[in-house]
């Protein structure tokens, strides 16, 4: 077994995930009258209106920690740029010509940057929407567009993220729950990272 995510990384990830799910569900409840039943499930419209901003703030804070922890590992290298051009092949499970990845593949890196940007937008526009009676009208008129658009992008990204980790790449979920992956998994999906970690272990063994 190879260690992939330590306890700190797993803790931050699940803090982000839990807050995201609450913020997304309570947000969807206030997004359309057809989804208002979600508010009923979560304790009623007034509760959702009162707690959604707090859920969002904790989410943004947790994502801030995540950003600080991972940003340095998420820079795209030259292989990643080729990977992005070949991503349709990756998606079709026909990986000939798709360059090997490091600890994170280019798709994961892009998700990281996109979610970080969307969260910043959600946070800023959310602070404006929180206080309609105080915030200037022009800012609110912008925020009513920015907030849902960033949320659509963010939820869309997370649908893909959940699919990839829980269904499309077996063995991934355990990396985030228990923290480790099998050598076979690492070799197949993150070859450069596999070579790096096993080399370090070899050197240690020597």
């Amino acid at each position: 077994m190879i260690d992939r995510f330590n306890i700190k990384e797993r803790f931050i990830h699940w803090m982000v995930a839990i807050c995201f799910i609450y913020a997304a569900l309570s947000g969807l409840a206030m997004w359309s009258r057809h989804l208002f039943w979600i508010a009923t499930v979560l304790g009623g419209g007034e509760t959702v209106r009162a707690l959604h901003p707090w859920g969002g703030i904790i989410f943004a804070l947790a994502l801030g920690f995540m950003f600080r922890n991972w940003a340095s590992q998420m820079k795209l290298d030259s292989d990643d740029k080729v990977w992005l051009k070949m991503s349709h092949r990756y998606a079709m499970n026909d990986e000939a010509g798709v360059p090997p990845s490091g600890k994170y593949n280019a798709g994961q890196k892009m998700l990281f940057w996109m979610q970080s940007a969307f969260t910043l937008l959600l946070f800023l526009s959310g602070m404006i929407l929180w206080f309609p009676e105080i915030m200037p009208r022009t800012l609110r008129l912008g925020a009513v567009l920015v907030h849902p658009l960033a949320a659509i992008g963010s939820i869309g990204g997370i649908i893909l993220h959940i699919y990839m980790s829980a269904f499309a790449v077996p063995g991934s979920l355990r990396a985030m729950t228990r923290g480790f992956v099998t050598p076979g998994w690492a070799k197949a999906h993150h070859r450069k990272w596999f070579q790096q970690t096993t080399k370090i272990e070899d050197e240690r063994a020597r």
């Binding site: 990986e95 790449v169 077996p170 998994w185 197949a188 999906h189």
Partner: peptide, 11 residues
């Protein structure tokens, strides 16, 4: 259509 990415299928 494509199913999961299996370790042994990797080239």
């Amino acid at each position: 259509r494509f199913g999961p990415k299996l370790e042994e299928e990797h080239p």
